[in-house]
Design a binder for these strands. Structure first.
Lengths: 300, 300
DNA sequence: CTGAAAGCGCTAACAC
DNA sequence: GTGTTAGCGCTTTCAG
């Protein structure tokens, strides 16, 4: 009898349904503060978000987008207490006290969440990461194979686990080839194009004095900024110096010369993160690490 | 007395609240199918989405992200019937029968929605658009001022109102300078880099035979693809031919030579669209058109 | 103005 | 199985 009603255009009220079930049916995606500042590449987030979207849809969940504000306290637990989300995925999490506290609170209260591209190894959180140690190792190994010996490294901020991973991969490749690693060849930027551009002045000296003949950069944006910056010193990537970026973003293919880089499966990382939360049975628990791939182009 | 409880960590249950109020507190953002295909630029969506996010937060709404699937019927009304959203913003809407029907249904049932970067002039929907007619006019006028006379146009698909707007601006600029407009100088792509790349073969003939000396392209992605394609024919943008893109995307600054383009306030467009729905009192009704800005770089 | 009570539209538990 | 009913945690209305 209710059958008939349903067939004549009845749709259940999701609000009532969710209230009665005490499940919001939402997975929250927490985004770091991006607008205007462009600290992170839109490519990165668009891919991860799309991957999350696919998995969420497959599991009949809706996606609630949460933009973190620069100043607001990261009260992730509130999202759960108010029942706005049943689970959440944190993008761009950093290893800083406030973040650690917010995540620890989630953990303590038993709220399901998953980090993407960031690990807190001691904590045993659900995590989907890419194998940045290997990616960096291969990138540097590739530079070495191309004959470069004095390889500088422009890394990202310490607050990201990938920075530690990349440093480890960089060192491993050098050591394996018997090249001594020098602290003075290591530089730090903040992933922005500008910070790469600004690193050019620091690097150009080493290049001039023949103490740097190639640079491995932790993301494409900085690498491209660096290319532009070095050009002002008359140094041409791919000619005067070897250069390899990271992410295989659209820009890496567009820039001249085309940037060698490391491809990261962001889409798949997002998808897997969502699956870990929404279809835990089929996914491995704990930390998942996905492989990356070296892309050789014109700058090496 | 309840005061005390609230101060001691009480948070209202949003599920119950929304159910009782019969308001979801969500604004839905409908995204066209992007993943993998990259038909639209991530830049475009990231900006609009961020703008929507800002306004939504200011109005105490949450953002529900809805990825449209390529095959799924566009049943936008269902989002409202199930009370998943109180209002929605449609991105990348196209002037095709299915879309028109879905939007007409929303209108008939009185569900609030707003389109971004797409108008259906006859319908009187809420819309936030950019002034692509003027943008195109200025772009082409700029090419003319630079001495180009045989200006081709690589437009986007007809299903977007911006294509008609750009064509109108293109023609107006030509007419105003007494240049006859030739249909054979008008080409169509689908906004992808690939379609720009492929247009190179068609355009190169006209360029060789001196019947085209500049190209106005409806977005940066196609313009960059075209640059790359033309290069294979030995034609260098900015030297052998004038070129101007559209969107002022990150890539336009990264590419060599730097692409002249038209800057579109995507962030603001998103913000205004959300405001129209959530703070209707302070926003003008109907269609809002935001100005764009010509950016002169190396390709003109 | 404060306080009690009905009811939002479902789900889930229980009785038939 | 099928049918009934309590109850989810709020808002809103209405009585006091």
């Amino acid at each position: 009898m209710l059958e008939a009603a349903k067939e004549l255009g009845y749709v259940p009220n999701a609000l009532a349904q969710r209230f009665a079930r005490r499940k919001s049916g939402n997975v929250g995606v927490i985004l770091p503060f991006v607008p205007k500042v462009h600290l992170f590449s839109t490519y990165y987030f668009a891919e991860i978000l799309s991957g999350i979207g696919e998995a969420a849809k497959a599991c009949n969940y809706d996606l609630l987008l949460i933009f973190r504000e620069p100043d607001s306290p990261r009260d992730y637990a509130k999202l759960f207490r108010t029942q706005k989300v049943d689970a959440c995925i944190v993008l761009g999490a950093q290893n800083v006290v406030e973040e650690r506290a917010a995540l620890a609170e989630l953990q303590e209260e038993g709220y399901p969440f998953c980090l993407v591209n960031q690990r807190f190894d001691e904590e045993g959180y659900l995590t989907v990461d890419a194998d940045h140690e290997s990616g960096s190792y291969e990138a540097v190994q590739h530079l070495i194979a191309k004959g470069f010996k004095q390889i500088a490294f422009l890394n990202g901020p310490d607050a990201f686990s990938s920075s530690g991973d990349r440093l480890a991969g960089y060192k491993r490749a050098l050591e394996e080839s018997g090249i001594r690693h020098e602290d003075e060849r290591i530089f730090t930027g903040n992933y922005s194009r500008k910070s790469g551009y600004e690193a050019a002045s620091r690097l150009s000296e080493g290049i001039r004095s023949k103490r740097i003949d190639a640079v491995f950069v932790a993301n494409d944006r900085m690498a491209i900024g660096l290319m532009d910056g070095l050009r002002e010193y008359g140094i041409e990537a791919g000619k005067d110096i070897g250069l390899i970026g990271y992410d295989d973003s659209d820009s890496s293919r567009i820039v001249t010369p085309k940037l060698s880089t490391v491809s990261v499966p962001f889409y798949e990382m997002g998808r897997r993160a969502a699956l870990k939360l929404l279809a835990a049975e089929t996914e491995e628990p704990g930390n998942t690490i996905l492989p990356v791939q070296l892309i050789k182009r014109e700058t090496t």
